[in-house]
């Protein structure tokens, strides 16, 4: 299959490794990945902040980017952005008087999958160790991000995939379904409440017995990881795509600060080591 990657703005700019991980997973299954270079953002930041008019050019751009390239299905490593495509883009376009854009947006959204949705429902991946060669011998807990859970109805797809990774040490997260407090611009419009929510989530992560928290939305992970860093709490966050992409030959390392760049060869950041047992 020819699969169009919607990286999402936050992954594109801040977590390129998550996009690369998505590519590696899909290529491993024998699919071709294309990246429509015209893509920008899903417009959720504008819509959720009430700036519908400013959202329209962003929506129009997304629709243009994903209708001018040929592909079978599109995928994004984010439940929230995928939910926004179907849930908000047509509504905002209609609200701003562009019914044709609303229809096109709905069409693009219908063919865009969240990563775990694509893997489980379309590509039939249920055992990451077996089918993807995924290997990650670390203690991990999992936070289900709200929009994937409640708007897309992802259920346990992400968690089940993570649990099926070879040698993973999975820990359940208490009160997992409670929001982490990110909420887009809520995070800086209501910083105190947002921070309190992050603290509650971090406490739950700590009590899970794992110091590494995975999830399906880079924005939530940026918020949680940043809150942990601010508070000197020993919790790190990692996108589940990176865990699925991790193999015995090319394991994801988690020592030191979580590296965001796609590292350039020979320029390994200082303080990074391969975890024991990662190579055989």
């Amino acid at each position: 299959m020819r699969i169009a990657l919607f990286a999402t703005c936050i992954v594109d700019a801040m977590y390129p490794k998550v996009a690369l991980a998505t590519v590696r997973i899909l290529e491993r299954l024998g699919h071709e990945v294309v990246f429509p270079q015209g893509q920008g953002c899903c417009s959720q930041m504008h819509v959720n902040s009430g700036y519908f008019e400013d959202a329209v050019p962003v929506i129009r751009n997304h629709v243009r980017a994903f209708t001018s390239v040929d592909y079978d299905v599109a995928v994004a490593p984010s439940g929230s952005c995928v939910a926004s495509l179907g849930h908000q883009q047509p509504m905002v376009a209609r609200e701003c008087g562009d019914d044709a854009l609303a229809e096109d947006a709905a069409m693009v959204a219908d063919n865009t999958y969240e990563l775990s949705e694509l893997l489980v429902d379309v590509l039939g991946v249920t055992d990451a160790a077996e089918q993807l060669g995924s290997y990650f011998p670390h203690p991990v807990t999992y936070h289900p991000s709200c929009h994937g859970m409640r708007l897309l109805g992802l259920g346990d797809r992400q968690k089940d995939l993570v649990r099926s990774v070879a040698e993973i040490d999975f820990h359940e997260l208490p009160d997992a379904e409670e929001c982490c407090g990110f909420g887009g611009t809520f995070s800086f419009k209501n910083p105190d409440v947002s921070g309190a929510m992050a603290e509650a989530k971090l406490r739950n992560v700590e009590s899970s017995g794992a110091s590494l928290c995975t999830g399906g939305d880079a924005s939530c992970l940026l918020h949680l990881g940043g809150a942990a860093s601010k508070r000197n709490v020993d919790v790190q966050t990692v996108h589940f795509a990176e865990i699925l992409a991790s193999t015995r030959s090319n394991p994801l390392t988690v020592d030191g600060p979580v590296e965001l760049s796609i590292p350039q060869p020979g320029r390994r950041p200082a303080g990074r080591t391969t975890p024991a047992g990662a190579t055989r």
Binding site: A7, D12, A13, S187, N190, G195, A227, K230, I262, Q264
Partner: peptide, 17 residues
């Protein structure tokens, strides 16, 4: 308000795009 409650991690060298 973002940095009152959280640090921003060091951005990557290059975007995915």
């Amino acid at each position: 308000g973002w940095t009152d409650e959280r640090n921003v991690p060091e951005p990557p060298r290059e975007s995915f795009r």
